[in-house]
């Protein structure tokens, strides 16, 4: 709540201070010949609000990575996951995705999104009104399940337009779905997140779902309450500018 207020305050403050600087500039130049500044066109800003709703029963979603980019995609079914994706899918750490060379504009969610909860994340980009949008977040009570949106083209979204979709659950294929104690970073286990070892199929696929103790995997720390189905999240996009 405090963070939200601060952001709002800053937004109001910035235009005021910019105005003050301009007028100060103007008075300094009063006694000199006005030289028109070189025409540097003001950047065109495209702004979006991305709302992610967690549709699962008991799978918190890790802080969301929201990314605008022009090329590429963050995963391909049937192909090996990038290490950046592995960090997110195994441990919920979005910093490597946000630091990826494809990223032109990136924002992180403030906190994990609890089941049933939503978060709205604002993101802007300069001089690109047809960016690709990717949204990635981990289902934290799993070994390496993630969901999101992969390089969705926003070219046809005009200011004022909204669009929404639902998202499937994917498996990064980088960590075996052992469901074992110590391997799941979410609150059910508090185990290890990222591990560079790749002991699974090593390609991204749709997630097969969890097994849990009720279905005979006695070594599992998961119960059927942690089960999920497709879709697991709703993603809404509004273009505000």
């Amino acid at each position: 709540m405090t963070n939200l207020k601060l952001t709002h305050y800053k937004k109001q403050l910035l235009p005021l201070s910019a105005l003050f600087m301009l007028s100060a500039c103007g008075s300094d130049n009063n006694d000199t010949t006005e030289v028109p500044p070189a025409e540097d066109p003001a950047p065109v800003i495209s702004s979006y609000e991305i709302t992610v709703t967690n549709l699962s029963h008991a799978q918190p979603l890790s802080p969301v990575a929201v990314v605008l980019h022009s090329t590429g995609q963050f995963w391909t079914i049937g192909e090996s996951a990038s290490e950046e994706l592995e960090y997110l899918a195994e441990g919920g750490d979005n910093s490597f995705i946000l630091g990826h060379s494809m990223v032109e504009s990136g924002e992180s969610g403030a906190a994990p999104i609890a089941p049933g909860a939503s978060e709205t994340i604002s993101i802007s980009i300069e001089d690109n009104d047809m960016p690709l949008l990717s949204v990635i977040t981990m289902l934290v009570n799993t070994n390496d399940a993630f969901t999101g949106l992969n390089a969705h083209n926003l070219a046809e979204l005009a200011p004022g337009d909204s669009w929404s979709t639902t998202a499937h659950v994917y498996d990064s294929g980088t960590e075996k779905n052992s469901e074992a104690s110590g391997t799941i970073p979410g609150p059910v286990d508090g185990g290890t997140g990222f591990d560079a070892l790749r002991d699974d199929v090593d390609f991204v696929s749709m997630h097969p779902g969890i097994v849990a103790t009720e279905d005979g995997l006695t070594s599992s720390v998961l119960n059927k309450v942690h089960a999920f189905d497709n879709p697991v999240a709703k993603i809404s996009v509004s273009r505000t500018e």
């Binding site: 749709m206 097969p208 779902g209 097994v211 279905d215 995997l217």
Partner: peptide, 28 residues
């Protein structure tokens, strides 16, 4: 969906519950 089990030899099923399961959709 498959039930499977975690035993390669014995158990109730010859299917591996951790790998040979799916959630729809299964093909694009």
């Amino acid at each position: 969906g498959n039930v499977g089990d975690s035993m390669n030899d014995g158990g109730i099923s010859d299917i591996n519950s951790s790998v040979q399961r799916w959630l729809n959709p299964i093909a694009k």
